[in-house]
Design a binder for these strands. Structure first.
Lengths: 109, 109
DNA sequence: TACCGGTACCTAGTTCTACTATGTAGTGGT
DNA sequence: ACCACTACATAGTAGAACTAGGTACCGGTA
């Protein structure tokens, strides 16, 4: 993946995944697939799993294990109240940053 | 500073500084001040200087030392051709990422 | 039976960037 | 002599994404 994109994803990928979980539970492999479909074609699987471990430890999601028809059991993640709060803060932070940056772009800077 | 903002700045702060340098050379202390004026009130001075060292080593800027009326001599940074190229890539990467994220926001996700 | 592709999860070690905390210097004013 | 402001510098820390593997379960096929 481009080095720029890698660095830019720091701090945003977590928000992206939380947003994906809004209103719809999902498991790791599924999230990876969704990210790929949405254009993030080169996000490594390991990156997603590490992130999921992190947000689980931070208490932003609830986890349930469900047997799969094919392959090992899935770990299904659901956004909880604290996760929604975190996602809200993410949108605030994002709005501020993207506002500033778009300003710079407009100024031809 | 918020932890979220800190992480989100990784990968974007460099682009922001390159954008600030477009069409107008500047020195470190000045850049720090400009960032503060534009709302990034809590960006540490040391962060800016470290970043400037990095982009100089990457060859994105030209540097000239100029005596100051007050205080030690200034190191004035000017965006060069390679820097403009890098900034261009930054805008591309940013456009893609912000496009995806705005899409997620619209979906109420 | 043996193998392979697809599904699904996991982790140790590396790299990069921003922050913390502190230090050094030059100038002008009291 | 001291202080405030200007101006630059850096060693050490933390956090997040990547690399590069590995484990495990299932179905189909040779």
């Amino acid at each position: 993946m481009g080095k720029q994109m890698t660095e830019m994803l720091k701090g945003t990928l977590e928000g992206i995944v939380l947003a994906l979980l809004t209103g719809k539970a999902a498991y790791g492999y599924e999230i990876t697939t969704q990210l790929r479909e949405q254009g993030f074609t080169e996000i490594a699987e390991g990156t997603v799993y590490a992130l999921l471990v992190r947000i689980e430890q931070k208490g932003l999601v609830d986890v349930e294990k469900r047997p799969s028809e094919k392959g090992p059991p899935r770990k299904v993640y659901t956004l909880n109240t604290q996760g929604e709060k975190e996602l809200n803060e993410f949108w605030n932070t994002w709005s501020f940053l993207s506002g500033r940056i778009e300003e710079l772009r407009k100024e031809g800077k």
